[in-house]
Amino acid sequence: MATGDTKKNAAEAATSKVEVLDKATYEDDPSCLTIVFHEEDHTIGNSLKHIISRYPEVEFCGYNVPHPLEDKILFRIQTKEGHNAGDCLKRGLKELEQIFGAVRRTFENRMGEFEGKIDV
């Protein structure tokens, strides 16, 4: 019972930021997913779309800012039959994290070299 409650609380906290649009349809057919990211914009929308649309199992991936005064984006993934759109989204987020991690490490290395050169 207690674990069920904490799970519910975590889900409730998440809904303020992330929300599945038309959850019943997704549960019925996991190849289509539309998810709402609150307080997000083109920054994450476009870069995530860019990564996910390169996956071979993805048929369609796109995002949309419904209204400029509403601080949210809708993110849609449609996969080929037998694939789970939610898994694609999670993979996309993970790989995006890896990419920016790589950018950061490369930048830090080059910056270190650059500063070393100046000191000499």
């Binding site: 975590a10 889900a11 998440a14 809904t15 930021k17 992330v18 929300e19 599945v20 997704y26 997913l33 998810i35 990211f37 997000e40 994450i44 939610g86 989204l89 999670k90 987020l93 993970k94 994290e97």
Partner: peptide, 10 residues
């Protein structure tokens, strides 16, 4: 976001 997505879908 990945953590939050995992918590709302299954």
């Amino acid at each position: 976001l990945r953590r939050l997505v995992s918590s709302v879908i299954r």
